[in-house]
């Protein structure tokens, strides 16, 4: 790990300066998008047995590639650990970081990131063994908790126990895999991460029924894709990729009906799909950028259902991640 950090530091020291200025051009010239992803979180970023990547965050990178190249397969996925992810983005090793990353003020400012929006509203929770008969996180005083280092989770955990005047023993690991393995062997009483992650990890344990997720959600974890500071054009491409997916769901455009919808008379749909105006060109992309996203990847709802929702083993409810018109928080500014 030290080696990786040193290499990345070297990359920051010797790295080319031009990469940060014109990412869109660099990516187009290169012909492939470098996407920093989680390599081991079901539902967000995980290669399957055939090496095909899938997940909500992976879909975001596919959508960006579809918008830039008209081909969602022109993505190189770089699996990153929580602690190496920011340096990888800062040093230009990846063009975009879609790795279930919480949007916070210090990451926005000190780390030099720009968050393109929120593709999953999450919150931190705890998982414990059923045998402990714990009903609430407030009963966890004195417990040992396994946690992945370099995450907001690690900080929230400390805050929550301090705020509730409970003692805590944290055991931190560099990767989520190591943390969950240590929890599984009994090193810790509880495992904590974002609630979506808890459901995903629980499925991978030997006997999922032996573990329960406690009801408390102790933090706001708006997860979103991020790009580097200082390149507004690329930032716009990332923002509008996500907005296009959310708008498509709101307008009822799916990967199945996108061809028909392109002929629609609805001006909102015409603007989004590029048959009216030149909104794609304004972004530095082609006219049919959003059409490609929806055709190749689908709208936000489709991506959600396929990766984490009813169509996936995780079966997470839409909840906060439903559209604003259906009682959730997902809301995108209009294309016009």
């Amino acid at each position: 790990m030290k080696k990786i950090a040193s290499i990345i530091a070297l990359a920051v020291v010797f790295g080319a300066t031009s990469a940060s200025a014109q990412t869109l051009k660099t990516v187009k010239d290169r012909g492939i998008l470098n996407c920093g992803s989680n390599g081991s979180l079901a539902g967000f970023g995980l290669p399957d047995a055939q090496g095909k990547w899938a997940g909500l965050d992976v879909d975001f990178c596919r959508a960006m590639a579809a918008a830039v190249f008209g081909d969602d397969k022109k993505v190189k996925y770089v699996p990153l650990s929580a602690k190496d992810r920011f340096t990888a983005l800062q040093s230009g090793e990846v063009d975009v970081l879609a790795r279930n990353t919480t949007w916070t003020s210090s990451r926005d400012t000190q780390l030099g990131l720009n968050f393109a929006g929120v593709n999953y509203y999450d919150g931190q929770g705890f998982m414990v063994r059923t045998a402990l008969k714990v009903k609430s996180a407030l009963e966890l005083g004195d417990a040992s908790v396994c946690v992945q280092q370099g995450t907001t989770t690690e900080l929230n955990l400390a805050d929550y126990f301090r705020a509730n005047k409970m003692k805590l023993k944290t055991v931190t690991f560099a990767t989520s895999n190591e943390a969950i393995k240590a929890y599984d062997t009994g090193r810790c009483d509880a495992f904590t991460t974002d609630a979506s992650g808890l459901y995903a990890e629980r499925l991978r344990l030997a006997n999922a029924a032996d573990h329960i997720v406690l009801p408390e959600i102790i933090s706001k974890e708006p997860l979103g894709p991020a790009v580097r500071h200082g390149d507004d054009q690329w930032f716009d491409v990332a923002k509008w990729t996500l907005n296009a997916m959310i708008n498509a769901e709101e307008l009822g455009i799916t990967s199945a009906n996108v061809a028909e919808m392109a002929k629609s008379d609805n001006p909102d749909i015409k603007r989004l799909l590029g048959s009216e105006g030149s909104y794609g060109e304004q972004l530095g992309l082609s006219k049919d950028w959003a059409l490609n996203i929806i055709k190749l990847v689908g709208n936000y709802g489709e991506s959600f259902e396929r990766n984490v929702g009813a169509g996936s083993p995780l079966k997470i409810e839409r909840g906060l991640n439903n559209l604003w018109t259906k009682g959730g928080l997902q809301y995108a500014p209009p294309v016009r």
Partner: peptide
């Protein structure tokens, strides 16, 4: 683990 792990990640000052 502490310094080039957590501290580096939280401060971003590689």
């Amino acid at each position: 683990q502490i310094f080039t792990g957590t501290v580096l990640n939280q401060t971003g000052q590689a």
